[in-house]
Design a protein around this nucleic acid. Structure first.
Lengths: 144, 144
DNA sequence: TGGTTTCGTCTACATTTGTCAACTTAATCT
DNA sequence: AGATTAAGTTGACAAATGTAGACGAAACCA
């Protein structure tokens, strides 16, 4: 079930985001678009594209004399996985607080909110009274 | 307002987590505790402790002939910040979906759920119909 | 057809991350 | 006091990340 190594560095995310969202995923346009956000040289962006291909996150197809890139992973699954990995190394006891913070600070559509409410309502009946800390050690992580 | 560079690598998180949760934050015990989870040599762990001190995330105080470490940042704020940074580079339009995924896959206590419900209920009235994609480019990110 | 622009490929280099082993020094035990 | 431990201190090194310039070939314009 493990999707194994999606791990992207911040720079790689930046590039992937453009590839995911552009309608013209060819080198020239990707370079131009990335540069609208980051002050990177053309070379740098090409380096990342190359590394992403090597990592298997992008595929190329030659079109005339330039390349067109295609992601091998869709954006949402990649985001879910990354977020999940981040949460994996957080103390279980405190995940709720972090999610609450995220929810508070993220712009959500009515639709998003309603869906969240539904998920929560479904979880509530079987929710435990408390989540134990899963940090190693003497369990001194006993705040609340 | 920027808290500037909390950025920790996965390994650093592992070490910080122990320092945050242990009741005996002295080198010997930290080393022992980290080793309960990761198969790292004593040297390796000491290296990370040193780097964390250099980065300003830990402070040391000599106690007899060993060191006692104190975090300069609390765990929850650090987690919130890291989670926030991750979300910053996700397409705004899709954050809701990722949060939904997180909520689905995270164990939450009754209390956590109730708090989330409250936050959501408060947001709903003023929630927009939809969140526009904030990726750069021609806005081709028009899925839904 | 030769010059200019546009791409791609290769090479390079400083930093950070991940991992240690060796050496030194202070504490302890007998 | 001498031997043995238990810390800390240094130095190293490979891989990943962040950045980019140089060079070569194909495409395009005059």
């Amino acid at each position: 079930m493990a999707v194994e190594a999606t791990a992207m560095s911040p720079s790689e995310w930046e590039v992937m985001r453009v590839v995911w969202s552009t309608r013209d995923p060819a080198t020239p346009n990707i370079v131009k678009t990335v540069q609208q956000k980051r002050d990177w040289s053309e070379s740098t962006i090409k380096t990342w594209l190359g590394r992403l291909v090597k990592k298997g996150l992008l595929t190329t197809k030659r079109v005339s004399h330039s390349y067109v890139y295609t992601p091998t992973i869709a954006e949402v699954p990649a985001m879910k996985q990354t977020a999940g990995e981040l949460f994996d190394h957080l103390c279980a006891m405190k995940k709720g607080t972090v999610i609450a913070d995220l929810v508070t600070n993220t712009e959500l559509s009515r639709r998003d909110i309603e869906q969240l409410q539904q998920i929560l309502a479904a979880k509530l009946p079987t929710a435990p009274e408390s989540i134990p800390c899963n940090c190693m050690g003497e369990g001194a992580c006993a705040h609340d």
